[in-house]
Design a protein around this nucleic acid. Sequence first.
DNA 1: ATACTATATGAGTATATACTCATATAGTCA
DNA 2: TGACTATATGAGTATATACTCATATAGTAT
Lengths: 105, 105
Amino acid sequence: MQTSRYELKANVLTALAHPNRIRILEYLKGGAKCNCEIAPALELEQSNLSRHMKILVQEKIVVSWKDGLRVNYRIADQRIFDILSLAGKVAHAEAKTRVKILEER
Amino acid sequence: MQTSRYELKANVLTALAHPNRIRILEYLKGGAKCNCEIAPALELEQSNLSRHMKILVQEKIVVSWKDGLRVNYRIADQRIFDILSLAGKVAHAEAKTRVKILEER
DNA sequence: ATACTATATGAGTATATACTCATATAGTCA
DNA sequence: TGACTATATGAGTATATACTCATATAGTAT
């Protein structure tokens, strides 16, 4: 089975497109963390968090490694923060550009 | 109802996170187009395309205006192309970084 | 071995998404 | 007016996603 470049991009964006996963990624900005730190910090139920992390690992947005019982995670590609920041700007622009666009045409 | 900044970002990313919507956006790079041009060009069924466009308009990723019977669309915020390009790089890095990461630690 | 801790996963449920076909609406043109 | 064209939307279906509770697995510490 072949995956188009559109699907590849969509898969990365889908993995990023959830409020809790965005919170997780911003939390990991502060350095590598294990599930047992993330769950209480972000108030996420254990199994739910585990599945969110699986999605992020599958898309190689974070990398994980075992340390005894714990599984640690860290950001694999810092560019995701550029994506998130741009998404914030686009979202923020939403309300404002409307007037501008109407004026332009 | 309050929408968190995480939700706002997730909404923008969700709107971008579909192969057909990515194709539509790249097609609109070539200038404003109406549904009746997009549908045959990308081989998308009419009502399906209509709903994809609705999603893009709702997130103000594209702007639309009527011209007689037609509804035209154009990109509202060029930064989405930066997001798409970054998503492509992150997706592309996936396969390659694995070795690097293992070497680093 | 036993108790404890951290994580993964099966199973169930609720909701969202993508898609299609049929139909409604609105504008165009003879 | 009637026929035609472009778009929107209701309804149905299939699939994906997020979440929870319960349970399994694996490593730690006594």
